[in-house]
Amino acid sequence: MRHIISILLENEAGALSRVAGLFSARGYNIESLTVAPTDDPSLSRMTLVTSGTDDVIEQIVKQLNKLIEVVKLGDMTEGVHIEREMMLIKIRVVGDQREEIKRLSDIFRGRIIDVSQTTYTIELTGTGSKLDAFIEAVGSTPILEVVRSGAIGIQRGEKALRL
């Protein structure tokens, strides 16, 4: 099963490679990984999407907790949560397609953030499957470039991953 694991880790050089190294050394999957500092500059928050059986996920969580730089972690998938991913997509658009793709972007609540005579660059936010659906909907229109941030997640309501 797919899990979104959020990790608060010391904002120190090498912390990221320790997490990445753990996953490769122990043969765990990483679907996506994203990391940035938080409101507390001494902490980074990493969001890691992985998959595995319950036993594997349990080991992943334990092994992550064992890393000295990991301060706290939570499995977002255990409770109700919100998941978001951002995509920037550059599409070649000429003639009728310009109107068509503009409409499609509106339907998906995307924003066109750059326009040239032959291209649109669209910013789109949502769950991974929504971004997949947009790519599919673009159909035969040539896609020049896709940049995805990887998923981030947060728990609903009062629950918070904080120190």
Binding site: D55, E58, Q59, K62, Q63, N65, K66
Partner: peptide, 11 residues
């Protein structure tokens, strides 16, 4: 003492 050793190989 190491939680990661528990139920790693044998439940």
């Amino acid at each position: 003492v190491d939680p990661a050793s528990i139920s790693k190989n044998v439940k």
